[in-house]
Every structure is written in structure tokens, then in C-alpha cells.
């Protein structure tokens, strides 16, 4: 497996007059060529901020990468100037945003918007770029692409718009596609179709995908490896099967338990993670999850958990997995 993206000890803070929010803390992960990595977590856990930092899309005035490196194909992204960035952004890394309405320009036809990338990055002439755009619109399965090309975003439905956004991200055949909640705004039937489409295109083009979502169903359908984020940190990472069948972190377990499955007993209560995530402007001394954790020990409040290896692909940041924590109930070995 060839390494494509390598993020090391990334820390991002947002500053305002009153406080400094540590949105992402010491996050490291990598993406190999051609694989799908899912980043899961609740809103506010820093998953979107991480994704945006890879594209260098953080608001310049307030958001700052404090520490760490983002290496894409051997080149450092965090220190690039604007000229160098253009070669990566939209060309080798594509991005699909959550809300298909606000990520399209309402004053341009969708055909022009898709073709724009080719004209900027690849130096295509307008006519040729348009032909390629039509080809791609056909690939994302929109009926009558020639006609669709001349339409404005408001004339299209939500599912169609999201397909256009995907086409836009794919036009330069990127090595890496970052999909930030690509289907959250859509209906289940459209969601299934868009996910199948993304998977198909990924296999055809051999690109890597980082999919950011809070929907574990989408993760199960789609990804090879999973990173679970909580309060700005990656608390657990592993392959798809490791995360779903052998979750080790109490947060991952809680997350898996709190989603209703179709074999859940009728009118039975759902397991709930009580409480809410901590305020990221005041950094907790120990584990950020300890307040909500039903297995919290004294050590959890005092010391930040180290990262423990479960296997070469499976890492957990939790004191319960320390060999000294023999008192800890082995609840987390339950497969569900």
C-alpha cells in the first residue's frame, strides 16, 4: 500500500476575543492510495475542521494550524503558499461539501461550474472542457446531460445538485476525495444511490476517499478503515471490522449502541451516552470523555490516556486498555 496522505500531530485552534477553542488536538492519521477512510464523531468533535485543514480552507483570521504536519504525496501542505496550493486544491484533492445548495454558485450554469476546474488546472479550452463536463455528468447518472449542463443550480433537485457537486470534485480526477457529510442533507433512497455511485467511481478511478459522517450505517456500507473522533482527538482507529465488532473505547461502544438497529426490540429503550461533549475552550486535564464514561477510573481524570495498540491497525486511547487496569470490567470485549 502506498502512502498518499500523512497527517502528524495536527493541532488547530480558533481564536476569538473571549476564548481560544482547541478544535483539533494532536491528531495523526494516514490514508493509503485507493482506500476509503471514514472519520466518525458527533458534531463539534473536529472532524470537519480536520478535513478543511487538509484543503487549507480554514478561515485565515481565526483558525490556525498550531502544530503538526500534513504531507500529501510527500509534500508539506501546511506551509504552502497560494500559488503552490492551487496545484493541489481541486486538482489532486477534490472536496464534496455537505450542503449541495450553498456549495454551488447560483449565477453560473452547472456545466460551466464543472468545466471551470479543467480550465483552471488543466488548461483546457472552454469547448473541450464542456465536452468533458458533459461526459462526467453522464457518469454521475443524470439523464440528459447535455440539457442539464445549461441549467442553474436552483432548477435542480437536492439529489441532482449533490451529483453535480460530486462531478465538480471529480473532474480533474483527483487522487484524494474528501467528502464532508456528502449525504446528510439527502433522503435515504437518494443517499443509497449517491453512495453506490461514489463507491463505483472510486473503484474505477482508483482514488482514495476520506468520508466524514456521523452515520454509522454509511460507514459500514462504505469504508475500509475508521477513525472515531471525540472532542478534537482520535480516540480509536481500526479497520471496519475491528471498530464494529471489537470496539475497545467506551465512546465507540456507546455510539454503536445508541443507534437503533432494525432488529432492536420494539418499544425498548435505546442505550444513551449521558451528558454532552466538553467545552473545548477549557482543556480537560485527563481524558476528555471521562465525565460521560461509565467506566471512568481515578486515573482518567488526572492523566491523558496514552495510545494502546490492539493490533497493528487498531489503536485505542483509553486507560481501560492498559494492562494495569485489571479492575476494569471487560464490557468492551462484547461483540454485538
Amino acid at each position: 500500500m502506498e502512502l498518499l496522505l500523512d497527517v502528524n500531530n495536527l493541532s488547530i485552534t480558533f481564536k476569538s476575543k473571549e476564548k481560544t477553542v482547541h478544535a483539533v488536538r494532536n491528531v495523526s492519521f494516514h490514508v493509503n492510495k485507493g482506500e476509503v477512510l471514514a472519520i466518525v464523531g458527533e458534531s463539534g468533535c473536529g472532524k470537519s475542521v480536520t478535513a478543511k485543514s487538509i484543503m487549507r480552507l480554514l478561515p485565515e483570521k481565526t483558525g490556525r494550524i498550531m502544530d503538526g504536519s500534513i504531507m500529501f504525496d510527500g509534500k508539506e501542505i501546511t506551509t504552502m503558499n497560494k500559488k503552490e496550493l492551487v496545484k493541489y486544491r481541486g486538482d489532486r484533492i477534490g472536496m464534496v461539501f455537505q450542503d449541495p445548495m450553498s456549495s454551488l454558485n447560483p449565477t453560473m450554469t452547472v456545466g460551466d461550474q464543472i468545466a471551470e476546474g479543467l480550465m483552471i488546472h488543466k488548461g483546457y479550452k472552454k469547448k473541450k472542457a464542456r465536452e468533458k463536463a458533459i461526459e462526467l455528468i453522464r457518469q454521475v447518472r443524470i439523464a440528459n446531460p447535455v440539457h442539464c449542463c445549461t441549467k442553474y443550480p436552483h432548477q435542480l433537485s437536492g439529489g441532482m445538485r449533490q451529483r453535480i457537486v460530486i462531478a465538480m470534485a471529480l473532474i480533474c480526477e483527483p487522487d484524494l476525495l474528501i467528502a464532508d457529510e456528502p449525504t446528510t442533507a439527502l433522503d435515504v433512497t437518494i443517499q443509497a444511490e449517491i453512495l453506490n455511485l461514489l463507491k463505483e467511481l472510486q473503484e474505477k478511478m482508483g482514488m482514495a476517499i476520506i468520508i466524514i459522517t456521523h452515520d454509522l450505517g454509511v460507514v459500514a456500507k462504505f469504508s475500509d478503515r475508521v477513525n472515531v473522533m471525540y472532542a478534537g482527538e482520535i480516540v480509536e482507529r481500526g479497520t471496519l471490522r475491528e471498530i464494529f465488532y471489537h470496539p475497545q473505547h467506551p465512546y465507540t461502544l456507546g455510539l454503536l449502541k445508541s443507534i437503533p438497529k432494525l432488529d432492536h426490540d420494539f418499544c425498548e429503550k435505546l442505550a444513551v451516552i449521558e451528558g454532552s461533549p466538553p467545552d473545548l475552550s477549557i482543556l480537560p486535564k485527563g481524558c476528555a470523555f471521562s465525565e460521560r464514561c461509565s467506566h471512568a477510573m481515578d486515573v482518567c481524570d488526572q492523566y491523558h490516556p496514552e495510545q494502546f495498540d490492539q493490533s497493528s491497525t487498531h489503536q485505542v486511547s483509553c486507560w481501560l486498555t492498559d494492562s494495569r487496569a485489571s479492575r476494569a470490567p471487560r464490557v468492551y470485549s462484547i461483540t454485538h
Binding site: 450505517g217 456500507k221 438497529k261
Partner: peptide, 9 residues
């Protein structure tokens, strides 16, 4: 029903 992604790989 079939379109709902099941959280089980």
C-alpha cells in the same frame, strides 16, 4: 427499507 444503511459491515 432497503435503502437504509445498516450499521453492521
Amino acid at each position: 427499507l432497503d435503502a437504509i444503511p445498516v450499521p453492521d459491515p
